[in-house]
Design a protein around this nucleic acid. Structure first.
Length: 119
DNA sequence: ACCGTGACGGCGG
DNA sequence: GCCGCCGCCACGG
């Protein structure tokens, strides 16, 4: 399993681990927080490669509130998100902005107030 | 070192 | 709203 290869990978996993319950973050946000806002592609790869417990990867969704992927078990991802209080409809999270987590706020204060991403 | 891969993002149709 | 194309980056072989 090999521990985390690069620092980038390590950082990404760390951030995902810091995502509180009931909150969701997009790959782009994680990538940006990891220091590579353009590496959202790699972030997805890291997730699929690191599929390991302890990492709430199901809280990581695509931009626009799309579910993204989950190794083929997308239904599980939907169930988990819905179970955490999120409203998931089909392949999309309707209130993703209401539960949008700010990685930049990780380490900072609460900053957990529902807030739309600045995009 | 090169190429291909992939749980993406944004725009256009 | 959904589907498709292009562009992006890091990782593995």
């Amino acid at each position: 399993m090999a521990t985390e290869r690069s620092e980038f990978t390590r950082q990404v996993l760390s951030l995902v681990c810091r995502i509180p319950v009931g909150r969701v973050a997009s790959y782009g946000d994680i990538a940006a927080a990891a220091g590579r806002p353009r590496a959202y592609r790699a972030v997805g790869n890291i997730m699929s490669t690191c599929t390991r417990p302890g990492v709430p990867c199901h809280r990581v969704i695509a931009a626009g509130g799309r579910l993204g992927g989950f190794g083929g078990n997308l239904s599980l991802k939907r169930a988990l998100l819905a179970s955490e209080g999120l409203v998931v409809t089909g392949t999309r999270v309707t209130d993703w902005k209401t539960h949008a987590w700010r990685p930049a706020a990780a380490g900072r204060r609460t900053a957990g107030q529902p807030r739309r991403s600045s995009r």
